[in-house]
Every structure is written in structure tokens, then in C-alpha cells.
Design a protein around this nucleic acid. Structure first.
Lengths: 215, 215, 215, 215
DNA sequence: TATGAATGAGGGTTCATTCAT
DNA sequence: GATGAATGAACCCTCATTCAT
């Protein structure tokens, strides 16, 4: 229970949720991420949450409403700290080298990513099918992150630490590499044994120097 | 229609499908990839295919059967040419430099990937929810590709073209980078304008030399 | 309605059934006994009961569940009073002569049999096809009745009122004769005019003295 | 196969059935008697018979047609030999004593009953639900048998071998007793071990002298 | 506020039957 | 005559949602 409680807190820290609401949210996250949104029935959620079927609809007008109320705060959560903390730190020149910034970013996001993994799975699953979700995601998350990252990139380029390449391309390559790592690590192959520190190091090294051998 | 006909041919070239079967497959692919497997009703597929609902179940015992019959041949298709053609060419030392191999691989797969995009979307969407699909994918695709790629990598490492790093890590980084490019290009942001040749070049360059500036 | 109400009361006297449940049961009994279980659709039952089809499945998980919930209490009902009342009376030597016992038994069961006729028809119809039903019937009804009857028979044999013959055979002959009478009377040929008292008398006389003429 | 072949011959000896027709009939009898008419699908029959679904409907316009074509000849078969052979023998005074007639009748019918058991089960099952069947049965079978039996009874009554009782009642009692025996023996409790000769003897004895002890 | 009985549209699937081959 | 693909109505059952309690 404490595990879910943490997730709930992380996601809805400011809102006031009744006890039943929390149970509904937890149950919905579990079912949605296990079977998918469409394949999950509200009655199943109600049973798992230990509430009556009607109770769900008292708090959330529709099933989609419930989905949104789970997934929307995730967005703020994913981007929020990143924007506020790290970005400022970078501006404050706390990370002189790109490597340090990358490492801090990965470390910083790793924890919240793990905690919110089920919700992230739901988000990724439903983005292709819920236009509102996709727009929300593209405009609130993708765009913002992309913009901030581009600024950061330009900064490092000016400092001569990054090659001359359009920031969008640099951003794309860096972000997909990091996400590729995190998704491989936590979504696709979580059952393998990973040496997290070493693999993080390699990922960063790859971003910086590629795979080609310097002669 | 010719577009879908092509896809059908690509996927089911050896099997003999009746006209109605083809229509069902095409309609199912369209609906599944647009709304997701669970959210698509068989009656909707029937209507779109212009056949009676019962006809679907004459050819495919269940709805999941229909899904599998769409997605299973994709696997062979995705991996087949790769294994046979490219791998042999590499062994035949047709690609002296890693760059050439990467470029050929991307180009080679790009075409089939575009054509099969809707089916790939379905596959990716349903892998988390259909255990049989996941196993099929992990064992038939992921493992095979990984193995072959690892061999290729070792070859280039011995030739001194790739850094010393466990082939698994090299494979992971290379594959996720390429997939990250293709997914960004064709799935996430297809509506942007892309200079395919240039962006492919950059992706390969990134894999080889990273983002760090040589001084 | 009062007719069915009576049947419902007789069958489910202890359980608390909602109004809709009663209507569903009544409608199901009517349809099952008229057209058979397999040939009756749940939508038909719903319509006849004046409820939504979903309502049926809220109370009974499956169609077979509905059948069982109708037929199971019948068993207790058919055997219950017999075991408790009559059997005790016999033990209490309330019936000195076999004839009196037989008459009381027939009279006693006639009433409930008439009232539960439709349900009995359903039971008899479905016993060959529902293994669970058959076992339930054989073990809960047939065996119990057979055992009790055998004890009673032995009693009368010891009193010299019945011929020496294995109690099983005696029981078989007596029971099938009585059932043969009741089934002829109420199931096969209910439209004929019957002089119930006289025919009962003849049936008992037949059991006691057969058809042969004493010279 | 020879078992079914025999049944087919017995039932349809005069008609010319194609090979496929026979297979259909055999398959239908098996399925109908196992699962009931309504619960058996034509496709299942086709599969079991090894013919195409359409073939069934080429020979029998509807599913009910198939049922009727199985069950109708049974009637003639059940009554035919009885009327012709036994009855004449009785008239020919081949059976002086009632006992002999009863024994001959039971023995005579036992064999055909066993062979046609599955078809008889179908007939008994469907009589309550198929009005045409019921009328056919009542008028062609029940009535005829009843009439003939009544005549026989009167004959024995005149000879002083049977008590004075309306022939209808005598017939009812005798017939239900015999049927009760045969049904107990072959339908309800076929798995018990039966001493057929002894039990037949007891049944006849019961009919003649009842269960009461002569002092 | 919370319940859970009730709804009826729609879910996937099977059905008896037809008909072009 | 035999086939089996095709049909669409009907099957049993589940669904998201409502509302009286």
C-alpha cells in the first residue's frame, strides 16, 4: 500500500482526494497499465478498489474522465521539476560540462520515472488513440522540453562542447538515446540484470563520443 | 486500394487469401491501428470491409485470431530480409565500413517499415497486453536481431572500427538510436518536414562520433 | 399471478427475492417448460419478465445459473416433506397398513407435484443433458428416497405385509408404479377426465394385489 | 460402425439412403441424443458426418426436417412388429397365460429398444416441444398400442385370468410398469448390474400378483 | 456521499440456411 | 449431387452509465 500511496502523493500532492478516490485511482492505474484502458471495465476497477460501481461515476463523470485525471497530472510531474530545478541549475552554471548535466538529468528523472512507471505506460499507450491526450502531451511536454533542451544545447554549443548541428537534431538524438536507455532498462527488459551506474556511464559516453574508435 | 494491396502482398505473399479475406485484413489493420485492438469492434471491421460479420469468424476463429494473423507474418517480414540479405552481405565483406552497413540497413528497412507502418503500430501497441505476442516478439525478433547484430559488431570491433564495449551495450545503443530516428520520423512527428538523407546522415554520424566536439 | 406467486413461495420460501427476481424466475420457468432450456433465449425471458436483459445477468451469472437456481430448490422441496413428515409418521407407526401409507404418500405429494409441475418438467428434461444436475438428482433425491423407502419396506416385510423380495426391487416396482400414475395423470394425459380418488385406489390395489385374478 | 449400420437398417430398411445420408443420420442421432435437439448445431452434425454443411440441407430442408426423418420411422418400428407379430400370435392363442404374453412382449421389445435407445431418447425428449411430434406419437403409437392392448386385456379378462377393472386402467398399470422397468434398466440406471432374467420375472410377477403377501 | 440495482446498447460469437461453383 | 463461403439474425453476456435509496 505504501508504494501506491507514494505514487498517489507524487501525482496528486496538491489536490485533496478522499480515501475512496485514492483507492479508485490506484485500482485504475493498476488495471489500465496491466490490460490497457479499453480492455479495463469500470466494474473491475470498482471491485479492485473496494467501492461501489456508482462511486466511480460520482467522482469522474466518465471513464475517460478517470483516465484523464490520472494522466494529466503526470505531465506536470514529468516536466515540472525538470524545468524548475535542473534548468535553473544549468543556467546557474552548476553543470560546466555536458556530461555532468546529462548524468544529473538521467539520475534525477530515473527515480520519478520508476515510481510513475505504470502511469507512464498508460500515457504512452493511450497517446495514439486520445487526440486530446496527444495534443496535451505534444504542447505541454514535448514542445516545452524540446524548447528548453534546445536552449541548453545552444549554450553548450557556444561553449564549444557540442558539435555544430541544428539544435533540433541534437535534441532528437540525445533525447531518443536517453529514452531508449530508460525504456530498454525499465520497460522492455526489466528482468535482465543491469549495472545501472555502468550502463548510464556508457550511455553518456555514447552521446558524447559515439561508437567510432579514435585512432 | 493499391496502397493496401501492396501491404497485403508484402505481408501475405505466400498465402492465398480470398478477396473477402483481404478486405477483412485491410479493414482490421486500419481500425486496429486507428483505435486500438480492444476499442475496435468486429462489427465495425465487417462494415468497413463490406462483408457480413459472420464472414470474419468463418476465416478467423476469434477476434484475437484475426489480430495474430495480421501481426505474426509481420515478424517474419521485419526480420527476414535483414537476416538473409544484409547479414550475408556483411559476412561477405560487402560493407567495409560500419557507416556503409548502417546506411544500407536504414535504407533497406525504411521502405518496408513505411509500408507496414500501421501493422507495426498495432504490434507495438499490443505487445504489452498479449503475452503470446510478447514472447513471439522477444524470441523470434528481438533475440534474433540482437544475436546477429552482436556478431556483426564483434566483426567490426575486431577490425578496429568500433570501440571496445560489450557487444550487447553497443547493440542496444545503436539499435535504439536507429529506431529512435525511425519512430520520431514516421510515428511521432511524421507531419514535420524532414530532409531524410541529411537526417539519416546525422544519425549515422552520431552513432559513429557522438555529439562531443573534437578539439 | 397468484398461481405463480404460490409456486415461487413454495420453491424459494426462505430466500429473499426482489420483485424483479421473482418475475425473472416466473418467466424463465414458463419459457423453459414450454420450449425447453436450450430453445429459450434470455432475451425472451427478459421480455416476458418485463426487465432488461442485463438485469437477468446481474442476478444470475449465466443462463445455466438461472436454470440451476430454479431447479435446485425443487429437489429439497420434493424430498423434504417426504423425509421429514411421512417417514416419521411411519416410524411412529401411524400407518399400520401399507395401503394407508401409500395413500397418504400419494395424496401428500400430489399437491406439491401439481403446483411444481412446470419446474418438474424442466428438471426431467434437463437431467439427461446437465451432468451436474444428474448427479445432484441421483445423489440428493434418488438415493435418499430409495434408502428411506427401503427401510420402510423392510419394516412392512417384517410385519408380514409385503412379500419377500429384495427391497430394491420392491422399491423400484412401487415407485415406478406411483410415478407412472402421476406422470400419466398430470404430464402425459392431463386432458383426459380422471376420477382421481378411484384411480388412486386402483393404483394402490394394483401395487398390493397385482392384476391376476384370485380363484 | 456396424452398430450404427444396424440401427440405420432397422430404422430405414425400406428407404434408399445414399452413403452420405446414412452418415448424416448416424451423426445426427448421436448428437441429438447426447446434447438434445436444440443444443445440437447442424455444423456439428456435418463435421461428425464428414460432409459439407450444405449437404445436410440438400437432403433435409430444415433442421427440424432432419429430426422428423429420424424420429418418424421409429414410430412405425416401435409399433409395427408388435402389432403384426405378437398380436396375431395372441389371437392365435399362442399365449395361453398372461404371464407368457407379458414375457414374450418384454423379450421381444427389449432387443429393438436397446438398439434404438438413442432414437427413443430423442423422441421422448422432443415430444413435449414439437406439437407435430406429439400428435404423431399420440395418434400413431399411444392410441394404437392402447387399443390393441385393451383388446388383449379383454380377452384375458374373459378367460378369467385378469381382474375386472376397466381395460384402460389395466392397460395403464401394466404398460407403465413395463416401461418403468425398461426405463429404469436402460435409461436411468444402466450402470448398475442387472440380472435381467430375474428382474423380468419379478416385474411380471408383480403385475400378476402385486406386492401384498398372501396368507 | 455512497450505494448497487437497473438499464439497453453493443460486445464477440454461433446459428440455420442459401447459393454460386 | 456436393461443396463450403457467405450471410445476418440471434445468441449469451458485458458494458458504461443512471438514479432511487
Amino acid at each position: 500500500m505504501s508504494e501506491e500511496e507514494l505514487m498517489i502523493q507524487q501525482l496528486f500532492d496538491e489536490e485533496k482526494l478522499t480515501d475512496k478516490q485514492k483507492k479508485i485511482i490506484v485500482a485504475a492505474i493498476e488495471s489500465f497499465s496491466e490490460k490497457g484502458y479499453s480492455a479495463t471495465s469500470t466494474s473491475e476497477i470498482a471491485k479492485k478498489a473496494g467501492v461501489a460501481e456508482g462511486t466511480i461515476f460520482r467522482h469522474y463523470k466518465t471513464k475517460k474522465d478517470l483516465l484523464m485525471s490520472i494522466v494529466a497530472p503526470l505531465m506536470a510531474n514529468l516536466i515540472g521539476p525538470f524545468v524548475v530545478n535542473d534548468f535553473n541549475k544549468v543556467l546557474d552554471r552548476q553543470y560546466d560540462r555536458v556530461e555532468d548535466f546529462l548524468k544529473a538529468t538521467i539520475e534525477n528523472r530515473r527515480e520519478v520515472l520508476i515510481k510513475l512507471l505504470p502511469v507512464i505506460k498508460i500515457l504512452l499507450q493511450e497517446i495514439p488513440f486520445q487526440p486530446e491526450l496527444r495534443e496535451l502531451f505534444l504542447e505541454q511536454i514535448a514542445k516545452k522540453i524540446f524548447d528548453r533542451v534546445s536552449i541548453i544545447i545552444k549554450g553548450y554549443q557556444e561553449k564549444g562542447q557540442l558539435i555544430e548541428m541544428p539544435p533540433e537534431s541534437v535534441a532528437r538524438l540525445a533525447i531518443t538515446t536517453i529514452l531508449g536507455y530508460l525504456i530498454s532498462r525499465y520497460v522492455l527488459l526489466p528482468h535482465l540484470e543491469w549495472d545501472d551506474e555502468l550502463e548510464t556511464e556508457r550511455t553518456i559516453q555514447f552521446i558524447m563520443h559515439g561508437l567510432g574508435k579514435k585512432e
